[in-house]
Design a protein around this nucleic acid. Structure first.
Lengths: 344, 344
DNA sequence: AAAACAACAGTGAACGTTCACATTTTGAAA
DNA sequence: TTTCAAAATGTGAACGTTCACTGTTGTTTT
């Protein structure tokens, strides 16, 4: 009698059909232990028959838990909306999987640094927490991070793991990974190794990779030459320009370690244009292992980041934080993938 | 006096501070015309000061409108979660932009065909509508589509635009695009053009491209040779295998039109391994213009789909449908991008 | 000056859950 | 039986909006 004849069924309809009270339906479907096995089964059966689904909005409103995470990409230099950093796209896949495994929904959004992103999501209860992905000038982020943390926003960030940043960060062990690349090149007999990518503290990830390379070189008794380092952001174009500058300088070099695969691919192009053979004249190692890395000629040797692990740990970390138990920052090891660009 | 001293502010807090009733706050912030300019400004100012944001869950619950769209990827053969079809990833970027422009949130999810995806999103009021992206065997989708449409779910699909499918579909004009590729190859003097990719009606997009190629050939007085068509799904591996099979058959051919760039890239690899020069011995044209297409050696000639337009039109179409006014299916033109793989 | 009408703001309820608490039922111990 | 705690269910309210009305102004019309 109390049932509405039209529209989606609500928990009241299920309750009526099952002959129980409405909150019991809610309890049963949530798996609350205080509902007897028998009635739970009856309720579940009826719910299935009537095609009932819990209304997400009502549920979130009452419980103050959206069971949703927002993934915010932001790149400082965004030339084209559709040209997203391929590495982050791979991360997207892994984060999606991780959230799905936890029964969470995933909202995604691309942001410019200037936007009031924090307001849009957590403040409006759209999401319980944020995952931040972004390259770019780190100093710009820091203030925002601190602000977010103070405001009580839950977030986890992918990037350089250092103690000075607020909030929890998950990232690759860039120094260790850089060392891997350096050791590999040295093992190939290379001694004059150039580094393409920003190496200052504004870009701590790249900086870490540079430090790792330098450490490996010193360890082998080679003093890194600062003249062989050229700035580049992670685009093919900048990689090409940096390599061109390196070539134009007339400096002597027999290897390039690029801070990212896109830079490496651009550099290989410049090398080819200049008639330098890869890997005979110049060995090239990249970073990220994006899909295109295996498709270049020769295929690019690179350091693979643990993307699958990254997504999982980011979600884990964020979830822990939401539930009030903070996990420590985590560093993931890189893995060297040797292909044709660095060895014969 | 009625204010809670703690927690996020609600519209009641704003109302109290502004000396108006709570619904007036709601109206003012929504831009309802029946609020005077003066009070609207006062309310907006106070809201800004108190850092107030409308609670998305309460809003959606009451208005029965989530202002959210769910983007569902699903690929039939999903070898690895992180290996998403690059073309769809590009689409993701454009759809994200389009939804953001409309003030909508975007939920994303990867699905297997078997899942009850429709239930998860629209039924639970998480999203107002769905956008479906997926290659794979079309026949499997059809039943689901029909079911969705009957059930009143709003959705727009990217794919082959044909009259027999239920729901609104947006897609590239595959026949026209295939003709472009064919005409280009013929203009290069090629006569024995192979097609790599499924060409039957289970894969209507690929089929359209094949039909376009055939039409262009016949138009030039060349009869297409069915022996030069080899099945392949859109992966590098299948492309390689198909090209290998073609080579092994001993058939005479001087060009390949691949149904996707991934297939083309795999085919180029097989050609290189077999010592055939591209483009001298065999001209290759792909489809999609994924980022890797410009990074191969030689760079791949391909047909670019209008990704930016696609995202916008998908969102537009879906939105129209949600608002009750159905838009017709749309076909977008492809654009030939000539690179080194097809001309000297 | 009365009537009519906008323009604006207020009132009460409703959206469909989950929560805290009260109440009933159950089964075993006394 | 009676007693009592544990298990199971019911009750009423609350989450923070938006909706449909009702009421109050101030402005125009005749």
């Amino acid at each position: 009698m109390g049932r509405k004849p039209t529209g989606r069924p609500t928990s009241f309809d299920i309750a009526y059909a099952a002959g129980v009270s409405q909150p019991t339906v809610s309890r049963a479907l949530r798996g609350d232990r205080s509902v007897s096995e028998k009635t739970r089964e009856k309720i579940q059966k009826i719910a299935r028959e009537l095609n009932y689904t819990v209304d997400k909005n009502a549920s979130s409103l009452r419980s103050q838990r959206a069971n949703t995470i927002a993934l915010l990409f932001f790149e400082d230099p965004t030339p084209d909306e559709s040209m997203i950093n391929p590495f982050f796209l791979a991360m997207l896949g892994s984060i999606t999987k991780a959230t799905a495994d936890e029964g969470l929904d995933l909202l995604i959004s691309f942001q410019r640094m200037e936007d009031d992103w924090h307001v849009q999501y957590q403040d409006s209860h759209r999401a319980d927490g944020l995952i931040l992905l972004g390259y770019g000038d780190y100093t710009k982020y820091r203030e925002r991070m601190a602000q977010l943390a103070k405001q009580g926003t839950h977030f986890a960030r992918w990037g350089s793991v250092s103690s000075d940043s607020s909030g929890v960060t998950v990232g690759t062990d860039n120094v260790g990974a850089g060392r891997l690349a350096g050791e590999h090149l040295i093992a190939q007999g290379r001694k004059r190794i150039a580094f393409l990518g920003h190496a200052d503290e504004h870009y701590p990830e790249f900086n870490g990779r540079y430090l790792g390379l330098s450490a490996a070189m010193r360890n082998a008794g080679i003093e890194p030459d600062p003249a062989l380092q050229y700035d580049a952001l992670t685009t093919e174009e900048e990689g090409r320009a940096a390599a061109q500058a390196l070539l134009d300088s007339g400096a002597d070099f027999d290897a390039i370690f690029a801070a990212s695969d896109l830079i490496a691919i651009g550099a290989m192009r410049a090398l080819a244009d200049a008639g330098r053979s890869v890997p005979r004249d110049v060995a090239v190692v990249g970073f990220d292992d994006i899909p295109a890395a295996s498709m270049t000629t020769p295929p690019l040797t690179t350091v693979m980041q643990d993307i699958r692990g990254a997504g999982q740990i980011l979600v884990e970390t964020l979830l822990a934080q939401i539930e009030g138990r903070d996990l420590p920052p985590r560093k993931l090891p890189g893995k060297l993938i040797v292909r044709g660009s660095s060895s014969a």
